[in-house]
Every structure is written in structure tokens, then in C-alpha cells.
Design a protein around this nucleic acid. Sequence first.
DNA 1: TTGCGTAAACAAA
DNA 2: TTTGTTTACGCAA
Length: 462
Amino acid sequence: RGPGNPSALDPDFAARAARKGGSRRNAWGNQSYAELISQAIDSAPDKRLTLAQIYEWMVRSVPYFKDKGDSNSSAGWKNSIRHNLSLHSKFIKVHNEATGKSSWWMLNPEGGKSGKAPRRRAASMDNSTKLSKVRGKKKASVQTAPETTADSPSSQFPKWPGSPSRSNEDSDVWTSFRPRTSSNASTASTRRSPILPERDDLPDEELLPSLVFSSASSNVPPTVTEELELIDGLNLISPSSSMLPTQQSVSSGPIQRDSSFSLRTRNTVGSASTFGNSLFNPVDVSLQSPVSRFSGPQTLEALLTSNSPPPSDVMMTQVDPILPQTGSRLNNPTLLLLGGQATQNKMGPVDPRGKPSEQQPESGAGALTPTLPMVACPETTANLATLKAPAQLGTPPLLPSGSPAPLGATQDRLPTDLDLDMYMENLECDMDYIINSDLMDGEGLDFNFEPILVGTKCQDPV
DNA sequence: TTGCGTAAACAAA
DNA sequence: TTTGTTTACGCAA
């Protein structure tokens, strides 16, 4: 594998190499593929292009590729195009509802971490690498029955296009999407297809909450469903990210979607202009130095103590949603988590999935608060409390060996891996609860349960 | 070491 | 076949 001798396989290599002596980095100029693709997408009226359209743009707009549109000579650079699209988190794939059409490719409003997707073979086997490997393996082995069962998470996502109670007129372009990474996540970045079945590939800390919401959203009235979808979207990037909303915001921008999600997101973000004309720069700044958004004691204090919604734009933009393994990113969610905890008494149950980073601002906006407690298992809340309380006292008995590195207001900061553990625990509880008290009961999924009863169930899930 | 270009394996549509 | 993901390699800065 791999090109031993590029010139042997790349007929343009010589020409390119020849020009390297000059000012050109590549045969077509100094722009990288990623930059060209960005340019192509940016030049599109809708700020989105299919792969084929990107090809077309290249052939049309880049002299070097003008005579390389035929399949004979295009394999190489098209492969590179695809490679770059997949590789860079700055590009996001958006499901194209039109049948037979390939996905839309858009620019990640958050800049995609200055291009590189977080799942490359950077450090040897960091979290992202592990995740990607796991995901890759799963993809190869699992990938089962996407969109099959009625109650599978996927069955709910097709609703996204129509956005139940909203306009359907644009359903063919309504593109539910998620960060590839998540990445999400995500995560992991990853990056994931908008198709929900890929949630099966999510690491547990992401999968579980997703299932929670999926189960809920597929069994609630449309209006509530929409709310939950919103949360689900948020949750996809949880426990700490805010990418999806941002992307939603952008997707609703150029695509002109009429969705409460996007509207709310805009409101939450504070100003859609954040991702308006310049899709990268404003957010890039926050990405490059996310902590700086919190460096101000006022902001931090507000996060930790204020009952009023903190600056929502901070909440929605400060975290890098794609790099859950990024320490700088995790710091913020940790703070946010604690911020949510700090306001727990005032605000009621804390989302067990540890995403007060979304909840808090949303609660302030009154948008999500009613729905979040629905899946908040009191036990997990209790666990959270038991975990958090000592931590807040500066004695983290349940903490892994990591040192919290207390400093000032951040003395509550927990080790990042603890965060994950906490998520896991909380999520497990959610799952147990959902499975045992709802799915197994066969009583339908009524999430409008009483917290007290829920607490009982959670205490003894079996 | 990192970013980039390139090739290629592989899978899904 | 096209699209998309991922891995691997070599090169240059």
C-alpha cells in the first residue's frame, strides 16, 4: 500500500515537482485540496455541494483540473477530494434527502478544528484514535439493520427532514446531519452520518443518552418530539459539545430551513451572525482558544453561580464538539458541569448526562428545561450529587487517580476521565431505567413520570 | 512532528 | 460505479 514512488503513479508528480522550485506548492497552485474544496463550497449559493458538484467546480474553476475531468485522469485527484472531505472536520456531510443524490458537503461552521479531523493517527492511540478504530471496526462488523425496526433510533430521524410540526415544504433538502466526528463525538468525532443507526457506533457515553432520547422522542407527541429531537441533537454532541446546534444553525442558514430547532438555536446562540457570512473565523477563534472564553472570572462566576442564563453564546460556541479527548475542551465542560451542579438546587434536576452546558443556557431560555428532567434519573442525580459533593469539598473520593489540579474556582474541576466515568454511570442508569421501567414493562414509553417513582425504580432497576 | 498529497482497501448505496 | 471512510506511505517544512 502507499505510493512508494509518487512519480511512478502520479503522472503529474513530475510537473508538480518541477513547479515546486517555484512558488507553487501544488501543480494547481498553493492551495491545498481542502482549501479548494472550501472554496468550492463557499462559492455555492447554498454553501453546499455534492461530491460531483465539487468535482465539477474543480474542473470548472481550477485550470489545472480543467482537462482532468474525464474518468481516466480524474481518479487520483477525485480520490484526494473525497479523502479530504472525509478527513477534515472542516467539512461536514449533510444528508441529501433527494433520492439517489449523494450527500451535501458543507463547511463546518466551527471551522473543523482548523481542518484536521480529530481522528487521525496523531498521538498513538489517543481517545480519538481509539474511537475511530472502534468505530471502524464496528462499521465493518456491525452496521446492522439500519433504519429497520420501528423503534430503532433511526425510525425517528427520518422525521427530521419534515421537522414534524414545522414546514415540510423543504423536506427534500431538510438535511438532518451530525458532525462527523464527532465527530462527534462526533465525538468523537466524530463525524457521523446523519443517519441515526450509526449511533450504534457511538461509544457508550454517547450512545446511551442518545438512546434515552431516542426512545423518548419516538413515543411522544410531535411537538414534544421536536423538543426532544432538539435535545437529541444536542445530546449527540454531548456530553460537552455544542457543535450540532451550531451546525444546525448554519444548516438553517444557507438552506433556509424553517425549524424551531434552528430558530431556537439562533436565539440560544444569541446571534446567528456568529455563523453568518464568515463561517469559520469567529468560531475558529473560540476553538483555538476555547478556554479564553472562560478566562474571565465574570463568566466563570456566572456559570457557577448565576441563576440567570449565562451568556449563551459562550455556552454554544466555546467547546470543541469534535474533540472530546481534548483536554482544553474538557475543561470547559467540566466547569460547565459543575456550573450546572452549582445551580442544581435552583434549577432542579441536573441532566444526568452531564450536559448542563446545554441545559443551563437552554433552561434560562426556558426551551429545554421541561424536557430534560424527563430522562433525569434521580438516582443518577443522586449519584451525581454524591460524586460532586465531595469533589466540591475538594476531596474527590471516587475520583480516579487523576489529580483535579484545584485552582481557585476550578478546584471543583474533576479529572476529565472522571467526567466520562460519570457520564457512563449516569448513562447506565438511564439505560437501566429506560429498559426496565419502560421498555420491559410494555406499558409504553411514558416519560412523564414522577420523579419520586422514578427514583424508586432506579434504586432497583431489576 | 505535522500537514499534505497520494494510493489503495474496503464498504455501502 | 459512485460515494464515503480509513489506513498507509512519502515528502516537505
